[in-house]
């Protein structure tokens, strides 16, 4: 296999080097890529969509159809990981472990019985106490991470950012919680069902916005149709339309990240993972 690999690699590399000789010089302002479509995007975006961040405008308006499927790709991956790994109806262990939250006393209780008071939380056999410093620092940081994530989504029109970046930051804040505490802590705050439904809802917000434009009489994803619903002029409607779909993207990406992480880290058992 090593020799096949080497031969294939060298062939591909040789072809690519051969072709690179005909490329326009790197960073040349007069290359075809920089002179054909991009001047239009750079010069006209502001008057056509009223969004100063050209990348956001091209992403969520000119090529919004690509981006819709990009969100769908993430969603498909979430569903695929779920269907591959999630195991239901695993035989419940005979005894469960519970831990008293305040004192840290751990109890083993037979199946069918409940812990003596509400101060107990259920833990898995592999449970290890989270480190106090890591736990505290993460608790302090998570709210700020989440506010930053919301800022990145909302401010995508004016600065680098947008739904994907903000969604990943929000997802990371929840994954940090799962790593510093455990998966049960996360599931208690955000159940698996909620997570899975929100993934679909996020993409649905995106595709639904497009379909709404279609129902309002213009082409699919033509946000200027939203002008009559949002009571703004068609140009501003494009800007608002971009914000709506970015929010959808943010929700979808955040939830899918958490969904994939939970399934992969616990091998689909939704227990203490890693």
């Amino acid at each position: 296999m090593k020799i096949t690999g080497l031969i294939v690699t060298i062939l591909v590399g040789g072809l690519l080097i051969y072709a690179a000789a005909d490329f326009p010089a790197w960073s040349d302002p007069n290359s075809p890529a920089s002179t054909y479509l991009s001047p239009h995007f750079i010069e006209k975006t502001m008057e056509e969509t009223s969004v100063p961040n050209i990348v956001t405008a091209v992403l969520a308006d000119y090529r919004s159809f690509d981006t819709m499927f990009e969100t769908t790709v993430i969603f498909s991956a979430g569903v695929a990981v779920f269907i591959l790994l999630r195991t239901f109806r695993r035989k419940e262990p005979e005894a469960r472990h519970y831990r008293h939250v305040l004192t840290g006393v751990t109890m083993r209780i037979k199946e069918g019985k409940l812990p003596p008071s509400d101060d107990f939380e259920r833990i898995d056999t592999l449970w290890t106490p989270p480190d106090l410093i890591i736990k505290t620092v993460c608790r302090l940081l998570i709210p700020f991470i989440q506010i930053f994530g919301l800022y990145v989504i909302a401010h995508g029109h004016h600065s680098p950012g947008g739904g994907f970046q903000g969604g990943v930051i929000l997802g990371a804040s929840i994954i940090v919680l799962a790593i510093s505490h455990n998966l049960r802590t996360v599931v208690k705050r955000m159940s698996e069902k909620l997570d899975a439904v929100l993934c679909a809802v996020g993409v649905l917000i995106y595709a639904g916005t497009g379909a709404l434009c279609l129902l309002l009489g213009l082409n699919f994803m033509d946000y200027s149709a939203l002008a009559s619903v949002l009571f703004v002029d068609p140009i501003m409607a494009r800007s608002h339309g971009i914000l709506i779909v970015e929010i959808g993207v943010g929700i979808a990406v955040m939830c899918t990240m958490v969904w994939i992480y939970s399934n992969v880290s616990s091998r689909g058992r939704y227990e203490q993972g890693l």
């Binding site: 960073s27 302002p29 920089s34 750079i42 975006t45 100063p52 961040n53 050209i54 680098p160």
Partner: peptide, 11 residues
């Protein structure tokens, strides 16, 4: 996408 003497595409 690189262009000499140009900045990030945010107006």
């Amino acid at each position: 996408g690189v262009k000499k003497g140009a900045t990030i595409p945010i107006l």
